[in-house]
């Protein structure tokens, strides 16, 4: 319930009229949105119980490793609710397969559709979504870890919350099933990072400073 309360309201995409190239325009709008989502994510992370008790080095490491996974949980959740085959980055930024292909995000589209299908089949609840997002961050396998015991306690607290929630619903296999989706989330996030780095390096798509700093940390 604490995570549900601290979940930020979804952002809307800002329009961009700096270019006539429609594919480039979509990418500029998307990168601007992701940059603002990152800002929110960092503020949100500080409110996860146990996060602020970690050393600053570990807070940075977890965010640098797990930020894209946490953001994609949100995209997958919004897309799952939308029903169609579009990726819902924001209420006013839904990209279909053709748009993703035209913008160089075909690989990301395919990976995210797989993840969305999996979440949709599981009929995730809002409680599960926010816990999964926090767990993706806590479980980001940052290396090296400054204080392994604190990070472990942070993970244990979230795991316990998930188990308590699922046992209150009398779903004994549910926590395990959710944890088993984390490898696909990791794999999807890696493909997303590669796609944005490729767009920046090879197609010179300008990327905001914070987003670029976080992509560089993954490169």
């Amino acid at each position: 319930s604490h995570l549900l309360l601290t979940e930020p309201a979804p952002l809307a995409a800002n329009q961009d009229d700096s270019t006539n190239d429609s594919s480039l325009r979509i990418l500029l709008i998307l990168c601007d949105l992701l940059n603002r989502e990152l800002l929110l994510l960092i503020g949100w992370a500080k409110q996860i119980p146990g996060f602020s008790g970690l050393s600053l080095v570990d807070q940075m490491s977890l965010l640098q490793s797990g930020w894209m996974e946490a953001l994609l949980v949100g995209v997958a959740w919004r897309s799952q609710g939308a029903g169609g085959d579009e990726l819902v980055f924001a209420g006013n930024l839904c990209l279909d397969e053709a748009q993703c292909r035209a913008t160089g995000l075909a690989d990301l589209y395919e990976a995210l559709r797989h993840l969305i299908a999996k979440y949709r089949a599981m009929k995730l609840s809002p409680e599960e979504v926010v816990t999964l997002k926090a767990m993706a961050l806590a479980n980001s396998d940052a290396d090296p870890v400054d204080c392994p015991d604190s990070v472990q306690r942070f993970q244990d607290g979230l795991h316990e919350a998930l188990q308590d929630y699922e046992s209150s619903r009398r779903e004994q296999h549910r926590a395990g099933r959710l944890l088993m989706t984390l490898p696909l989330l990791r794999q999807t996030a890696d493909r997303a990072v590669q796609a944005f780095l490729r767009l920046h390096r090879h197609r010179h798509v300008p990327i905001h400073k914070l987003l670029l700093e976080m992509l560089d940390a993954k490169a």
């Binding site: 600053l56 965010l63 400073k209 914070l210 700093e213 940390a217």
Partner: peptide
Amino acid sequence: TERHKILHRLLQDS
């Protein structure tokens, strides 16, 4: 932290 100064600053802001 020099390479990741925006993240560092955001985490230190209360």
